[in-house]
Simulated assay, not measured.
Amino acid sequence: MAVESKVIEHIRNVLETFDDKYILDGRIKKTKVIEDLDKYDHDLIQALLSDELIHNSYTEKIADVEVFKVNQFIEMLEFKKYWEDSYTKYSNKIGLTSGGKFIDESTDVVLDFPFKDTVLKAGMSKEDLENS
């Protein structure tokens, strides 16, 4: 039996009002929710913000305008799978990060060599072994 956080319970209650659009076999279709949030689906965002806990947790007032922190909300949904057996939001993944994301999740990664005008050759064949 998985234990859900209070926010996830509220999200589930909101998403259940959409019938089976966001819920399948009792589980939240995270990819569909994230996809619609990326598209700024008005019905979904309005339903989420109508919940007081979600509204208080994921909105911020800037220049007398309330802004929904979509990226923070999506991040919470992506890390939900680690909540069931962990006390942290971080995955059991070790690697290089840039800007808070793992390099393999980013498209802005460049392998840069300091001497671009040279050719590096490496390797050893049986002939190289015999000559040494």
Rank of each mutant, 00 (worst) to 15 (best):
D112A: 04
Y22H: 05
A47L: 00
S106A: 12
V65N: 10
A63P: 00
D41E: 10
E105C: 03
L129N: 06
L37C: 05
T107S: 12
K29R: 15
K80A: 10
V109N: 08
K116G: 06
F102S: 03
V65L: 08
S91A: 15
V14A: 03
K80S: 14
H55K: 09
K32C: 03
H10C: 12
K61A: 04
E75K: 15
D108V: 02
D112H: 07
F68K: 15
E52L: 05
Y90Q: 05
A63G: 04
L37R: 01
T31E: 13
T17Q: 11
E127A: 04
V14E: 03
S57R: 11
N71S: 12
Q72E: 12
M1Y: 14
Y40E: 01
F73Q: 01
F113W: 10
Q46K: 14
K101Q: 05
K69D: 12
S125D: 13
S125E: 08
K69T: 01
A63Q: 13
F73L: 05
D112S: 11
I34P: 10
S5V: 04
P114M: 06
V7G: 04
K89W: 07
L129A: 14
Y87Q: 09
S91H: 09
L15Y: 07
K89A: 10
S125Y: 05
N13I: 03
I94G: 01
S5A: 01
V119K: 14
L44Y: 11
G99A: 00
E66V: 05
Y87N: 13
K80L: 07
A122G: 11
D51W: 06
